[in-house]
Design a binder for these strands. Structure first.
Lengths: 216, 216
DNA sequence: GCTTAAATACGCCAAATGACGTATTGCGGC
DNA sequence: GCCGCAATACGTCATTTGGCGTATTTAAGC
């Protein structure tokens, strides 16, 4: 077994410490390291043959949450474990939302880190018990789930929103036309305008963007 | 250290197996066992000096979820770890809501069980990696909280799931091919097979169905 | 060793989609 | 009355997607 790992952290000493921990295990190989999210994305561009990323949260330029979103959007098969000294709810929740596959504290011992990496690659999730408890609490109190607003002030007409809603059901243009008593041509035009306003280029992206902006 | 444990399971062989696992550790002591929730509550009545309960989910008379609610309402200081052979979302979610402090599968080895018990008493939560992943998915998808467990027993291969994940990001076939180091033809074939298995006819429907069945 | 399932890969064809340009109608505001 | 915007509608063209057949290679199970 040869597991290819990337480490992302703005602190070189901590990178060194993590490498040290990984060095005990023959099946783990550090492909490269990066000092922030931007650096990571650039390096992934030219060397995407990575199984798992150990990611810090707090970093300059692009933090770990943003980087996780970006990586997961482009390389969903790459697993990501957040590895950080902080365990505040905000970071944990945002990381999970961004798609992280695990969340460990940096004080983790080599054995548990190794174990967590294997479990994550095996379709599980790696988590400190204290983190696990926080996720359970978050699940029990679904109070502030959807309200992280970063609305870009996008304005769609009411007709466009109707079309978008139909689109999100998985209907094709002809069915939408039937449902809204429109010509298929008109539906297409509406969708074209929607794409322009949202700056996207296909159904999926339009629906995702619309949802994240509470348009539908 | 003297940790007082109760085991609740309607299957005597499984109780025996759990006792066996606990017997390796001097700090763990099984105070009593019960065969269902009702039995547990009665026994707790006369002997409430228990630190932690290992609880089965599926039981006659009163199941583990109901028992957890009842115990937590009356004895909030007692920790409860669900210990079951099944790991379906419904049970996990309901157990968490009922107040469980952990969720382990019965196949867990003695060391991990011991570890999980200590961590739970120490203010953490015990969780299998596969369970942990499910809780993360539940956190990401606050929508499938109240609804159905109508898992249609759809089986996708791991490669198919990878493709589906890429698809759900809004990528087109060529980009998916690039990301997974495949020929576009292969991506198309995978997607075709996915559609057949899910009985759908386009991206959107596939993604919706996959999400509602927790495949992605 | 044989069987099966999964993963890989092509080709063909029809349908759906996305990106253009263009045009008409209706309605509210100034 | 004119302006601007939303809503309506067509045509064209290239690309993407979905459906179907076929084939080879690899991994896993018996």
């Amino acid at each position: 077994m040869n597991i290819k790992i990337a480490i992302v952290d703005d602190n070189n000493f901590l990178i060194r410490a993590i490498q040290e921990k990984l060095s005990f295990f023959d099946d783990l190989h550090v492909k490269f390291t990066a000092v922030n999210g931007k650096d990571l994305l650039e390096k992934l561009e030219s060397n995407r043959n990575v199984d798992l990323i150990l990611m810090d949260v707090e970093m300059p330029k692009m933090n770990g949450v943003q980087a996780t979103s970006a990586v997961k959007a482009k390389y969903p098969h790459i697993k990501i474990i957040m590895l950080t000294v902080f365990d505040n709810d905000e970071n944990i929740f945002n990381s999970i939302k961004a798609g992280a596959d695990g969340y460990l504290l940096k004080e983790v011992n080599p054995k548990d880190l190794h174990q967590g990496i294997l479990e994550t690659l095996n379709g599980g999730a790696a988590m400190n018990p204290s983190i696990a408890l926080k996720t359970l609490k978050l699940l029990r109190n679904p109070f502030d789930f959807g309200n992280k607003a970063q609305t870009e002030d996008i304005k769609l007409s009411s007709r466009e929103i109707e079309v978008l809603e139909q689109l999100s059901k998985g209907l094709n243009y002809n069915n939408i036309a039937d449902n809204l008593f429109l010509s298929p041509s008109t539906v297409r035009k509406h969708i074209e305008n929607i794409y322009t306003k949202l700056q996207v280029h296909n159904k999926l992206e339009a629906i995702q963007k619309a949802k994240s902006n509470n348009l539908i």
